[in-house]
Structure formats: C-alpha cells, structure tokens
Simulated assay, not measured.
Amino acid sequence: LAKKIIGDFDLANEPQKYGLGIKEIWEIPADRHQPGKVDHYLGFPLDNATAGGGFVYHAEDNKLYVGLVTYLDYADPTLSPFGEFQRFKQHPSVAPLLEGATRISYGARALTAGGWQSIPNLAFPGGGLIGCSAGFMNAPRLKAIHNAILSGIGAADAVTDAINAGRQHDLIADYAEHIFRTGIAKELQGVANAKPLWSRFGTVLGSLAIGADLWISTIFGRSPLKLTKHGKPDFAKLKPIASVTPRTYPKPDGKLTFDRASSVFLANLAHDEDQPVHLRLADPAIPIRANLPRFGEPAPLYCPAGVYEVAEEGGESVFRIHAANCVHCKTCDIKDPAQNITWVPPEGGSGPNYSGM
C-alpha cells in the first residue's frame, strides 16, 4: 500500500534502501543458554562488497534467535541471502550453540534501511505515512520500533490539531513537522552518512568510516560530512551474470543447514492452493526473455522461500511461481532487476503464522 501511495502521489526523494532479514528460532540445551546475551556479527559470511551482518540472541526458555541481514544493494546475481544465512550458522561461535539443538521456527522480512535521505514526503491528501512505511528504521543502531511508536504519536498530534481547526479532506502541511519533532529527525540525521559510507567503501573501510562519523556526531552534535545521495536503487545494482564468477552453495546437511522447503514448513504458512496469485508480473515474458540471459534470472536465489523457479518444459525455459510458499518478505518486489514483480496482499490475509518471531 505504501509503495502505491508513494508512487501515485509522487512522494519519493532518494531511493529507499533495503535489507533482507532471515531469522530462525532454535531451542538449545540449557547448559549453552545465557539468558539476555546478545551477539552481533559484522560482515561474515558476506564479502567486503556486500553489506550485512548477523545476530544471535539468547531469549527465555532456552530459545536462541539466529539471523542474518543481507543488504539488497548487492551486485552479484548469483548471491543467495538464504545460502549466506546457512553459511552464517557455520561460524565457529554459532555452530557449537546449535549442535544437537532443535530448529522450531523460520521467517524472513525486508527492512527499510535508507535512513534520513530516503524518507519520502510524508503527507498526502487524506493521509500520511508512519513507521517503516516511511523508512524510520535506524539501521546502524539496529532499532526501529521506537520510531514507529513516535511517528504514530506525531501523526496523532497532527491529525488532532487539524480536526480541532475544523479541517477535513485536505493535506496536513505540517504533518512531517509534527513527526520529526518527536526526536526522529535528530536521531536519523545523526546516522545519515552510515549507509552511503558502507556502500561506497565496503565493509572494512566503510565500518571504520562509519564508526568515526558516529563518534563525531555524538561528541559534536553533527558530522562535517553531508552524504545526501544513495545512488541507484537496489534493483539497479546487479551486474550481468557474465561479469561474475558464479557462487555455489553446498547441499544442506539437515542438522545445521537446511533447504528452503523445510524452512518454509516452519513458517506455518496458510495459503489456499487455488487462491489468486498475489505476486503479479507486469509482463510474464520478462523473466525468461530479459532476466534469464542477462542476470541468470536471480529470483530463485534472492527469494528465501522457494517461490520462484526456472524449469524446463518441452526443451524451453519457463518461469514458475509457487505463491503458496511465500512468506511475504517482499524481496522480489524490491530486487527484481526489471521491476516486473509486484507483491499484493493475498486473498483472505493468508500467509505465515509465525510463532515467537
């Protein structure tokens, strides 16, 4: 809905940037569990040119939350965020925690990570954007819920003032002002250089530059750097497949690493098999005619749920959509290089029924 509103009312500024978060919940032996412990990982197993990082959270009842965020501005069309997540679990400080443990849940979701530069114009006639639809996530500090709440408070204040003034059906011109003065603007402006620095210099040098920039902003209240541009949107960052060395991912062992089918099963999906496909192709021919020769058709790789497949029928390549597998992460809507796929809400609100996520 937000994508359509932003497009219809021409609200966009800089392109939004996204990350794909993939997460599992495990139940681990009590002797390995340290309630409240939080571990964050920078980079691994991604290469220097691919932004992202992992996390391991020790929750209650011997639960372990394990996940990896891969930023979707990666360039290699043969990269699989799902495959990279399987590699992440093989890290020497993660794998021992999961040995002999039980995987009980799986999920995935795209995250807005563009920050201050990517916030669209927030108000439109009859409404306004809030929360992650507006892109209020503080990606460098890994938090967003507080800004979603603050934006709701600011929106309520703006609407209340408009109603008290006897207004209706018009544009609330000071809507953004109400939201930004909740503290959202100050917070996101303070980390505005982080994503551009990471994209420009890679994980190693970019992280050093981000750290220095955040310290300067904290100490002096602002940074001398003003990196206002993200450049190309995520879908435009892919290189032709002929220009990369194809990546390969080992067969899962079923103990630590898994395939998409068994993972999607743990998302507790509920889709009617005969419901209308909620993943719409503007041109059904593009995946095979354009994406396959140029990019190797990356949809089966960037999708973490096994929704897309390139198969052979009668000696010809065909593009299949297994919509019942969808976990509604929206990665395809974001990363498809032709912008040919649009995710729409499925019939009856069906989808994953996450447990404890």
Rank of each mutant, 00 (worst) to 15 (best):
L1Q: 08
K3S: 11
K4G: 04
D8K: 06
N13H: 07
I25H: 05
I28G: 01
A30E: 15
D39A: 08
G43P: 09
A59G: 12
D61C: 01
D61Y: 13
Y65G: 01
Y71K: 08
T78F: 03
T78A: 02
Q90P: 02
P92H: 05
S93N: 06
V94S: 03
A95Q: 13
A95M: 12
L97M: 07
G107V: 01
R109E: 15
W116A: 01
A123D: 09
F124N: 06
I149P: 13
I149V: 12
G152Y: 00
A162S: 12
I163L: 13
R167W: 08
L171G: 13
E177R: 08
H178P: 14
I179D: 04
I184P: 09
A185H: 07
L188H: 05
A192I: 05
R200T: 14
T203F: 06
L205K: 15
S207N: 07
G211N: 11
P224G: 01
L227W: 15
G231Y: 12
P233R: 01
F235G: 03
I241P: 08
V244R: 05
D253G: 06
G254P: 03
K255E: 04
A261S: 09
A267L: 10
D272H: 08
R280K: 12
L281A: 11
L281M: 08
P284I: 02
I286N: 11
R289G: 13
A290D: 15
A290R: 03
P298K: 03
L301D: 10
Y302W: 09
Y302H: 07
P304L: 14
G314T: 14
F319Y: 14
N325S: 14
K330C: 07
Y354H: 11
G356K: 14
M357H: 15
